[in-house]
Amino acid sequence: MECCNTKQPWYKKISTTLLGTGNCHGEVNQATQGLEKIALVGSPNVGKSVLFNILTGAYVTVSNYPGTTVEVSRGKGKIGTKEYEIIDTPGMYSLLCITEEEKVTRDLLLRESPKAVVHVVDAKNLQRMLPLTLQMIEGDVPVILVLNIMDEAESLGLKIDLKKLEAELGIPVLSTVAALNKGIEVLKERIGEYVYAA
């Protein structure tokens, strides 16, 4: 369910406009009609919203606990020379959904078929998060894997061979530290190439 739903009963419409509850929990909804879509998905608390904020220059609420994002946010982001609609989604562990927020995310994938789906994972927890990547590959979802929070993984002594992982999975794989703005240029580049090739 989206916030600015058009199929609302009259009293809700009136009350939301009157009270400003339409634009609820600090989520963003920029005008992005007609643009190709890029969705950010992944487990809760891996930094999807941080990436969204960087890519769009907008601000959606970011916190250090799972489940901060409960709504879909849409913003405009420039990658290369082209503008895209960037979509931030509530956390999802698996394509097989448990919670309402997970359903929101899966419905979005099913309904809007984004040009690229950026699967953001916590690098140190690759083992627990890769199953969703595999599920999306299985579903022919155009997925790019982003190992975020790479700094924490590195300080734990973890080394990940990105090239090898990329070869194994057959999809683009790269690493970022979104909170410190690291790896963003490469991310944009790879998304650009990927969408262009598709």
Partner: peptide, 11 residues
């Protein structure tokens, strides 16, 4: 089933 799903989804 729901507990099973939760545990599995968290790896």
């Amino acid at each position: 089933g729901s507990i099973l799903r939760k545990l599995m989804s968290m790896g």
